[in-house]
Structures are given as C-alpha cells and as structure tokens.
Computed example of a mutant assay.
Amino acid sequence: MALTEADVKKQIKHMMGFIEQEAGEKVEEIDAKAEEEFNIEKGRLVQTQRVMIMQFYEKKEKQIEQHKKIQMSNLTNQARLKVLTARDNMITDLLNEARQRLAEIAKDPASYSALLEGLVLQGFYQLLEPKVTVRCRQQDVEMVQVRSRFNKNIHIYKEALKSNVVVKIDQERFLPSEICGGIEVYNDNRKIKVSNTLENRLELMAQQMMPEIRVDLFGANPNRRFTD
C-alpha cells in the first residue's frame, strides 16, 4: 500500500523529532562532560594557585623571620658594643683619675724618696748589669743621688746577687718634668732600658689587674666558662 503524502510528512516529522531529541541528549551529554571537565580543571587551577599562594606567603614569612633575627642580632650587637664602649670609657676615666692622683705622691718627700729607692733597686734587679745609669726628673736629682740610699741599694744588690754594680746618675738628660715621677735605668751602652716611671708602673699594674678591675666594677662575666 502506497504511503500518502501526509503519511510521508508524518514519518519525516517523526524522524526529525527523533533526531532532534537524540541531538539534544547528545548536546546535554557534551555540556555535562564539558561542565565536569571545566570543574575538574577549575579545581586543579584553584588548588595549584592555592599551593603557590601558600608557598609564596610561607617564603615571605621565612624572609620576615630571618630579617627579624638579623635585626635582633644587629641590635643585640649594637647594644653589646655600647655597653663595652661605656665600660672601656669608665675604665679609661678610672685610669686617668689614678694618673692624676699619682702627682700627689711626689708631694710627700718621705714617701716619695722611699718609693724612688725601691724603684732604683728594682731597676738593678731587672737589668743585672755591672754598670747602670739612672735617669730621673731634674727636680728629683737631689733626692735620687742621696749617697746613703745609693749605698744601701748597692749593698742590698751585692748581698742578693754576690755581684757589684756601679751606678751613675744622668746629669745631662732628664725625664720630662710633666710626668708624675719615677726613674729609668739603663745599661752601660744605653741599649737596654728599664722604665720605672710612675705612669709606667700604673700601666703595668692596670694590665695585670684588669680582670680583677672589671669584676670589681661590673661583676663576673656570666658567659665566661673558666675563671683561672
């Protein structure tokens, strides 16, 4: 039985509807798959960026922490240097005050003459030479050349070392008058010198006693492991 034109149109319409439905379903499937892939890619990108941002701020945090440590170290070192400088200035002021007080020693003739006697004898022991020259300030010449003191020192030296010593006082070149006092002792050719000026004795004493001075002024160093 031949199909009428109406039947053909109806079948064509039915086929077109089927094709459109199938195409719609395919489009929906493609859209769904695209949406899924989009969401997966979006999630991957978001996670990647989140990790990158976390790494960036973690790096920044470490840099800031490192910078803080450096700053703290610098500030600590600066503070330590200021403390050390202040301590050194205090010790310098203390030694300067001690030097100023040295001048008072020479104002007491009895004490100063006894001190000169000891300094001269010590110079003999340090040189251990048969001939020595003693140099002093010009204003101290009379006090140094008192015969009784020289004879006493020579006698003590002879008794101690069983050796003689010939002593001469330098009458041509004197120690600077501005020093606080004391003497210098030379061997015969003046190539060896023992400096027993009051300033020199103070300097030697300060060097030897500096650890004790620091402890007395500032207390024991808590960071020092050994005290001997």
Score class of each variant (00 low, 15 high):
111 S>T: 10
28 E>V: 01
123 G>M: 15
198 L>T: 03
192 I>F: 14
164 N>G: 15
106 A>N: 05
52 M>A: 14
16 M>Y: 02
185 V>M: 01
88 D>R: 05
105 I>S: 02
206 A>T: 15
172 E>S: 11
175 L>A: 07
71 Q>K: 06
208 Q>S: 11
63 Q>A: 08
80 R>Y: 05
209 M>A: 03
105 I>W: 02
222 P>M: 02
213 I>G: 00
130 P>R: 07
67 H>C: 06
152 K>L: 13
211 P>I: 13
185 V>W: 07
155 H>E: 15
32 A>D: 02
30 I>K: 10
162 K>A: 02
147 R>E: 12
10 K>G: 01
131 K>V: 13
32 A>W: 07
165 V>Y: 08
115 L>N: 12
140 D>C: 07
170 D>N: 00
115 L>P: 07
77 N>Y: 10
214 R>P: 00
120 V>G: 05
204 L>R: 11
106 A>W: 06
48 T>A: 11
130 P>D: 12
153 N>R: 03
190 R>M: 05
143 M>Y: 09
162 K>L: 02
36 E>L: 15
106 A>I: 08
78 Q>E: 14
27 V>D: 06
126 Q>A: 06
23 A>P: 01
46 V>A: 04
82 K>H: 10
118 G>I: 04
132 V>A: 09
27 V>I: 14
95 L>W: 13
77 N>M: 14
122 Q>W: 12
90 M>N: 00
114 A>S: 13
134 V>M: 05
91 I>A: 04
43 G>D: 03
173 R>L: 07
39 N>C: 01
26 K>H: 04
198 L>F: 07
210 M>R: 15
142 E>H: 10
223 N>G: 09
77 N>D: 08
184 E>A: 15
204 L>N: 15
208 Q>E: 15
202 L>P: 14
217 L>H: 13
186 Y>V: 02
206 A>C: 06
76 T>D: 03
89 N>W: 14
9 K>C: 00
34 A>M: 10
210 M>C: 12
5 E>R: 12
109 P>F: 07
70 I>F: 06
196 N>C: 01
